[in-house]
Amino acid sequence: MNMNLEPYEAHIKVLQEEIAALQSQKEKNEREITMHLGGSMKNALLTMAGIETGAETRKSLMEIKAQLMTEIEELEEDLVRQTKMNGIALISCSVKTLEKSSSKLVQQYRLAGHCSSLNYQVEFVLSDVQVDAMSERMITDLNIIMEATEFKDFSTFVSRVEDNGDLLLFFRTIRRFSDMCEDRRRTFQHFQEKYPDVISLPGGCRSEVMLIQVPKLPGCSLTISWALEVTDVGEVIPKIDLVTKMPEKALQMDTRKVMDNAPESFQSLLKILGVEASIEALVQSVLLNM
């Protein structure tokens, strides 16, 4: 009597090959989605897998759901607090693992969000390398897309940040820039609401320009131009100027050159009084002359 064991051996070989393929598929999946396999997540994953294969599970489904729910609530609170404190909102974040070993982890991040009304998209590679029990984290391949037109002029700053991989500087700068944009908007709106007859915002409240016009004096206007400049090293500098416009005839009558000297006087005023008080003084003087 001689039994043939070959079919068994063949079956085993096929299964082993199939398992190897599945194993690499599973690893690939886990790379696509970063699993923070903490307690409750691991339980949930095991339960899911257990349910699928019909095996016994240690914890009941309800229990695991409740635990996940509690954790999610806590994480959501954290996120709200973080967003409020940072002044930067993150809407989406996708992470893909490019390389993983015991001493090295390389991941690609894609972030999108906004800082008040400025939308951004950022993409970068984060490498975490263990050197002598110390972890060294580094950013490479930084790519930034700013949708906001307000930020379009600062391509030199953005490309410098991209070259240096200076992610933190970029976010510090857009936060300060956006804060200053908000200041400007608040100030412009405040004056327009206070003096609707003389003040208009031709480019909307978010623009750089505020116009002071007196209906009785057609052709005369004072323009406040409030630009925000971003230097190459990420400093945000406000530039506030007064531009005057007057018909030729009226200018000839202005013997004391008040209009000519106005921009310079306005600069001195800014230094002494600050922005709001200077604009207030300017508007008051216009109203007084009516």
Binding site: A44, L45, T47, E71, L75, M85, Y109, V122
Partner: peptide
């Protein structure tokens, strides 16, 4: 299962977002 999956997905998403806040130099509170 789909409910549990949704919870799990939200969990990973929140964890990623919180870590991203740290990465962009945000203040971890």
């Amino acid at each position: 299962n789909s409910q549990l999956l949704l919870l799990m997905a939200r969990h990973t998403q929140l964890k990623d977002l919180l870590y991203a806040h740290h990465l962009i130099g945000g203040y971890d509170v």
